[in-house]
């Protein structure tokens, strides 16, 4: 029984991590707390659902569409909202509040287009087969989410650590001015980051829409709150931290439901989060420091 709970916790944790990876990427590189990430995530789920239902496309095509659609949406948000604020050197709170506005626009648009009620992916979008091993069951989807999130984390970490592009992104995170003087196309990489983070957010939306077998225009909001908790816990802007924080939250939730009942879930989870932050205010992997101007 416990084995099964651990597998559930692992897949739930990876769901959170998947969401948090894009969120932390934007913060790490752009220094923006992007409160529209939940809405972009929701948009990904609806975008995939729509093309899959209308054109009877398979899941992989839906995922690909959500990736591209949300990536472009991220680019648009950056161009229309974040770039003008960057150009004016707006202090940190301003872009954060602007992204609340973006979230409201996207959420309302989804409500207008699709209605406020819950929707589902088309029947048979993903196989319901479960794999069984030593009495533990796991669905194909859960396995996919776990593999995808770990691979994604590894790719992002390696890219940031070992490639010239990754070093450039870390340079920008520390000091955009130093990055300019190194010949880095800083604006271009801001766009690239916005594209990548939103595209990953869209893919996460599809996977999580399938995982919970429901989507609604406001599905991104609870996810956003948990995503913020996850990245704060892991250390703002840290890729490992997002993964680890997601797993921490998944395990804390599943185990507290198992042992203390579902009413205590959030109390236990956020109580633990509070305790961790008392000991390590920068988060588990945090190296957060003031950005140099």
């Amino acid at each position: 029984m416990l084995d099964q709970q651990l597998v559930n916790a692992l897949s739930l944790g990876c769901v959170y991590a998947l969401f948090a990876l894009g969120f932390t990427l934007i913060f790490g590189v752009l220094g923006v707390i992007n409160l529209a990430h939940g809405a972009v995530f929701m948009t990904g789920a609806y975008a995939a659902m729509t093309v899959m239902a209308r054109f009877e496309l398979p899941l992989w095509a839906g995922l690909l569409f959500a990736f591209a659609f949300c990536g472009l949406l991220g680019l648009l948000i950056d161009f229309l909202v974040l770039r003008p604020l960057r150009a004016r050197n707006a202090p940190h709170l301003i872009p954060m509040i602007a992204t609340i506005g973006v979230a409201i626009v996207l959420n309302s648009a989804a409500q207008g287009l699709f209605g406020a009620e819950n929707q589902r992916f088309p029947e048979g979008a993903i196989s319901n087969d479960t794999l069984q091993w030593a009495g533990v069951r796991i669905t194909v989807l859960e396995l996919g989410i776990i593999l995808f999130s770990f691979v994604l984390m590894a790719v992002l970490m390696l890219a940031l650590k070992r490639t010239q592009l990754g070093r450039a992104l870390r340079a920008m995170a520390e000091s955009p001015k130093a990055a300019y003087l190194l010949g880095i196309n800083v604006e271009g990489l801001f766009y690239l980051t916005s594209f990548a983070a939103a595209a990953l957010g869209g893919v996460a939306g599809v996977l999580i829409g399938l995982y919970s077998n429901a989507m609604s225009p406001l599905m991104g909001q609870p996810m956003l709150h948990k995503g913020i908790a996850v990245v704060i816990l892991g250390g703002m802007g840290d890729i490992r931290g997002a993964m680890f924080g997601g797993l921490f939250l998944g395990f804390a939730e599943v185990l507290s439901i198992n042992y203390l009942g579902s009413t205590m879930r959030d109390a236990v989870t956020f109580g633990l989060l509070f305790l961790v932050l008392l000991v390590r205010p920068k988060g588990l992997f945090g190296t957060l420091q003031e950005r140099k101007v």
Partner: peptide
Amino acid sequence: LTTLTVHENLELGAY
């Protein structure tokens, strides 16, 4: 760039 190693700083110089 204080959060990068000496070697990484130099590599980035060749960006």
